[in-house]
């Protein structure tokens, strides 16, 4: 057992089929409109407004609704109305499974209880570091911002796992790193599977398929994804009065036995569990 989404758990338990889950997810997608989609459906904004806002969101850590209000495209009252409608009409996966006939109300309650029990040990600690580094809010911001970029650049739902200290960096399909230097010194690393590398490549290249892309382009997109995250981290740190320069991203080669973390650094791994079952690992090596 690992960190799971409820639907995935039900499939693995044999309670529902993959097709049953797919039908329920499709129903959710039809019913659970994103804020921008809802605003467009209500005739408050245009497709062009959304595109502009999304482009701006890639470089600004601000929610879409707040951005639309900032740009004068929505009034605060309209935003509030949209958020209330979105919340009141949200269809959860359990309800979707009932509506598509995959589960009964009774079995949903039973399975939710057992799911909660199995997942309790994976309850996230938020973005709290397990030990203090002296700059905890800064590094916690790194973690939060990485999650934000997973949502905004990759458009993937995710669930943060528990942050743990590490002494070894384990191999993966690819690890991309950036050095953060200035008032603080750290190494920012993201570790991705082959599947996640392709997901990142599709998002960064704005392409539907990357199957025929050469390996060097696929690798480059992961480095650029790290660059985008670290650029945002440096920008946000700057707003908080912390000067932080970023050096160009590079690929980390990890031997099969793993790479020991350097002396004099506090080293942490922060798993971000993605909706498709994959995991993006964020590794921070923070100079003490």
């Amino acid at each position: 057992m690992a960190v799971k989404f409820f639907g995935q758990y039900l499939v693995e338990q044999g309670t529902i089929t993959m097709d049953g889950l797919r039908n329920a997810v499709e129903l959710q997608e039809k019913r659970n409109l994103k804020l921008g989609e809802l605003a467009m459906e209500m005739g408050l904004i245009s497709v062009a407004d959304i595109q502009l806002a999304h482009n701006e969101q890639m470089t600004r850590d601000v929610k879409l609704g707040d951005l639309l209000v900032d740009r004068g495209l929505l009034s605060p009252a309209q935003l509030n109305d949209l958020l209330v409608r979105q919340k009141n009409n949200h269809l959860y996966i359990g309800e979707a499974l009932i509506q598509t006939g995959a589960l009964t109300e009774t079995s949903l309650r039973e399975h939710l209880e057992s799911f909660s029990a199995t997942q309790a040990i994976y309850a996230p600690t938020g973005t709290r570091l397990p030990i203090t580094t002296g700059n905890d809010p800064l590094w916690e911001m790194c973690l939060d911002l990485t999650c934000s970029m997973v949502t905004r650049v990759l458009d993937l739902k995710h669930r943060p796992g528990t942050c743990m200290p590490i002494t070894t960096i384990h191999p993966n399909h690819m690890l991309a790193a950036m050095e953060l230097q200035g008032d603080v010194t750290a190494r920012f690393i993201i570790s991705v599977s082959e599947k996640l590398q392709k997901t990142i490549a599709r998002a960064m290249l704005s392409e539907w398929s990357v199957e025929h892309e050469p390996a060097e382009i696929l690798e480059d997109t992961v480095r650029e994804f790290a660059n985008v995250i670290c650029g945002n981290i440096a920008a946000k740190a700057s707003q908080a009065g912390v000067v932080m320069d970023i050096l160009p991203p590079y690929t980390v080669q990890v031997p099969p036995a793993g790479l020991p973390t350097p002396d004099g650094y506090g080293s942490f791994i922060f798993p971000i569990h993605l909706e498709d079952g994959d995991t993006l690992e964020l590794i921070l090596l923070i100079q003490e």
Partner: peptide, 30 residues
């Protein structure tokens, strides 16, 4: 740049005569 339009490098670029700054990731329209 990926620096989001703030910071010393951004300011320095403008001082050195850069005409504008494109933030990464960018869209064709930007």
């Amino acid at each position: 740049t990926s620096l989001g339009g703030v910071g010393d490098k951004f300011t320095e670029a403008l001082k050195l005569g850069a005409k504008n700054v494109i933030s990464k990731p960018f869209g064709a329209d930007d």
